[in-house]
Deep mutational scan, measured.
Amino acid sequence: YKELDVHLRRMESGFGFRILGGDEPGQPILIGAVIAMGSADRDGRLHPGDELVYVDGIPVAGKTHRYVIDLMHHAARNGQVNLTVRRK
């Protein structure tokens, strides 16, 4: 696995990616679609299928989808987010 730290600034449309997973206990949280011309797309480092490991330094492995969405909403209010993702 390769770990990447990604800092994104929120645009009008948000951070520019969707979150998948976390529906079953222990299921990984994954990056879903990366939205064209969004913040994540312009940054270029997030890829669909990347596993989300940390959101603003908070571990999200094994957490629920709702928990991660709530963290992302909090980050959106701050206008930026630091993510750590893991890729095979």
Rank of each mutant, 00 (worst) to 15 (best):
Q80P: 03
Y67G: 09
V68D: 02
A40R: 03
V60N: 00
A75Q: 04
D43I: 04
N82W: 12
L30E: 10
I35V: 13
G38F: 02
T64R: 09
E24G: 09
L71Q: 07
A36N: 11
A36F: 06
K63R: 11
A75T: 04
E12Q: 12
V34S: 04
A76N: 14
I58N: 12
D56P: 01
P25S: 08
D43Q: 05
E51N: 04
D5W: 07
D56G: 03
L4A: 03
D43K: 04
V68S: 01
S39P: 11
Y67L: 09
K63H: 11
S39V: 06
G16Y: 02
L46H: 00
H73K: 14
L4P: 00
Y54N: 14
R9W: 12
I31Y: 00
L20H: 14
D70W: 07
V34W: 01
A61V: 14
A33R: 12
R9E: 12
R86L: 06
G79F: 05
R77Q: 14
N82S: 12
V60I: 12
A76Q: 13
H7P: 07
V81H: 00
A75N: 02
I31P: 00
V55P: 00
P48C: 10
I69D: 15
P25T: 09
S13D: 15
N82K: 12
R77P: 04
Q80M: 13
G79Q: 08
Y54W: 10
D43W: 03
E24F: 09
R10S: 15
D56I: 00
G26D: 09
P25E: 10
M72N: 02
S13F: 05
Q80D: 10
R87L: 04
R42P: 05
L4D: 03
A36P: 15
P59R: 14
H47F: 11
R77L: 12
A75I: 04
D5V: 11
L20Q: 15
M37S: 15
A61L: 15
A76Y: 14
G49V: 00
L30M: 12
V6Y: 01
D23Q: 12
G26A: 06
H47I: 13
K2C: 08
M37W: 08
I69M: 15
R77E: 15
T84R: 15
V6F: 05
E12N: 14
A33P: 13
V60T: 10
P25I: 09
N82H: 14
G79S: 06
S39C: 08
G79N: 10
G26I: 03
I35Y: 13
E51C: 04
D5G: 08
D43T: 05
S39A: 15
R9A: 10
A33T: 13
R45M: 06
K88E: 07
D43M: 04
D43E: 07
L52A: 01
L52R: 01
L20R: 13
G26R: 06
D23P: 03
N78G: 08
D50W: 01
G22C: 07
V81E: 03
V55I: 14
M72F: 10
I35T: 15
I58S: 10
R86D: 15
P28V: 05
G57F: 05
K63C: 11
Q80F: 14
G14I: 03
V60C: 11
I31A: 00
H73S: 13
S39N: 05
G79L: 05
L8I: 07
H7L: 09
I69A: 14
V81W: 01
G62K: 07
T84G: 08
Q27G: 10
D70L: 07
M11F: 12
K88R: 09
M72S: 00
D41P: 04
V6T: 00
Q27F: 07
Y67I: 08
M11P: 04
V53K: 09
I19R: 00
H47C: 13
E12G: 15
V85S: 00
M37A: 07
A61R: 14
M37D: 15
G16L: 01
I31S: 00
I69F: 07
G79A: 07
L83Q: 00
H74A: 14
G49K: 05
K2H: 06
I29S: 03
N78P: 03
L20A: 14
M72A: 00
I19E: 02
G79R: 06
G49R: 04
L4Q: 05
P48S: 11
H47E: 11
G57T: 07
I19C: 06
G62S: 06
E24M: 09
V55Y: 02
I58F: 11
V55D: 03
S13C: 09
G44D: 05
A61H: 10
N78T: 10
E3C: 11
D56A: 02
L8Q: 01
G22K: 08
L4S: 04
L71W: 02
F17V: 12
D70Q: 11
V53N: 04
L83G: 01
T64H: 10
L71S: 02
D23S: 10
K63M: 10
V68T: 07
V6W: 00
D70Y: 08
N78A: 11
I35H: 14
D5I: 11
G16S: 01
L8K: 02
A76F: 10
H74W: 09
R66G: 12
Y1C: 06
R45Q: 09
E51K: 04
K2W: 09
L30P: 00
L46E: 01
I29T: 06
M11C: 07
V55L: 11
R77M: 13
T84N: 06
S13Q: 11
L83E: 00
I29H: 14
Q80C: 13
G49S: 04
E3F: 15
G49E: 06
A76T: 12
V34C: 07
D56C: 03
D41Y: 09
L46Q: 00
R66L: 10
G22F: 07
Y54H: 12
A33Q: 13
A61Y: 11
A40D: 04
Q80E: 15
H47M: 14
I29M: 09
K63T: 12
D70M: 10
K2G: 03
I19P: 02
D23Y: 10
D23N: 13
H47P: 01
A33E: 15
V6Q: 01
D5P: 05
R77C: 12
V85G: 01
L4V: 09
H65V: 09
I69E: 15
A75E: 04
H74M: 13
D56L: 01
H74L: 13
Y1R: 00
Q80R: 10
A36V: 06
L30K: 14
I19F: 06
R9Y: 13
I31R: 01
R66W: 08
L4E: 08
A33N: 14
H65K: 15
L30V: 14
A33G: 11
D70S: 12
Q80T: 12
L46W: 01
R45S: 09
I19Q: 01
R86Q: 04
K63L: 08
G62V: 00
G49N: 08
Y1W: 08
Y54E: 13
I31L: 03
G57D: 10
A40P: 04
E24H: 12
M37Q: 14
A76E: 15
I58V: 13
F15T: 00
M72V: 10
R10K: 14
P25F: 07
R77V: 12
H73F: 07
M37V: 05
G62C: 07
L46Y: 03
F17L: 14
I58Y: 11
V60G: 00
D41F: 09
G62I: 02
V81I: 13
Q27A: 13
D23L: 11
Y1F: 13
A61I: 14
G79M: 07
V6I: 14
Q80K: 12
